[in-house]
Nucleic acid binder design. Sequence first.
DNA 1: ATATATGCAAACGCTTTGCATAGAG
DNA 2: CTCTATGCAAAGCGTTTGCATATAT
Lengths: 148, 148
Amino acid sequence: MVRRSLIAEQVLEIMSRPVRHCWTLDELQDDLARQGLAPDPSSVFRAVCGLERSGTVVRVPLGDGRGHYEVASEHHDHLLCSTCGRMEPLACSIVADLTSRVRVWSGFLVSGHQLVLSGTCGSCADDARGGSEHEGRRSASRAGKNGS
Amino acid sequence: MVRRSLIAEQVLEIMSRPVRHCWTLDELQDDLARQGLAPDPSSVFRAVCGLERSGTVVRVPLGDGRGHYEVASEHHDHLLCSTCGRMEPLACSIVADLTSRVRVWSGFLVSGHQLVLSGTCGSCADDARGGSEHEGRRSASRAGKNGS
DNA sequence: ATATATGCAAACGCTTTGCATAGAG
DNA sequence: CTCTATGCAAAGCGTTTGCATATAT
């Protein structure tokens, strides 16, 4: 369980910061670059893979086609701000009783769930009211297509 | 709004079948092949793209990295059976009041959601009890990695 | 003749792997 | 010397696009 890999250690350190909740490999690589390291994408990938294998981080499927990772903790769901693209964790207790209800209604035995709520986070709503719109960070590629 | 494209028409016909709820481009191509057509992946893609642009079908992000499509109807969520890989629709009224609660708790203004419940569907549970396990259809690539 | 549909091939974005090198024990 | 970490390059996989041809109006 010893983590000899420098990159893996730094990745874990970065992912433990409260500034962000979910990281793509790219974002991790950027942050690593910002602190002197300039690792190859494959190295980041392998570091995250190792952390995932050891159960330290988990992959979160957000539906934009890329891999998102966060440090493993209690299961929770996600609030995705469509303005700034930031993710916030959401205690999944709200969804908890849902599983039992589904079972009764449909015979489907729920063992896990993945919920992504999209919308506008508090600070972005404030910004919008304030007037100055600061640039969002999501390229309008695949992610933006479903307006819902 | 006229759909002159043969492939698009067939795609829509296939997607309207009740046997399955969500289709990947691959699955559509397979079904098309099964009825005589042998379209190129790009043709299927363009057909689905057109249907998506016209609002006839919607893309459903299921988190396995591939595109899933279903005919547009009222928003609903999804039950994903991890044994047979089949998708079932789930009326999202269960999640409805969730949005308002989230707003109060976090200031996050929810405008959409995407919920995937995974587990075992009724018939797979029956099969398991019956003994004869019929093969699942998901390659254990990316999709299978998060046990949760 | 103009427009749409389709196939083919190639580009693309991101992930993943193979191979060689470097560094630590 | 052996084992792990890393970089580099290339393969994969699904999606997407460019171009040429076919088909229809």
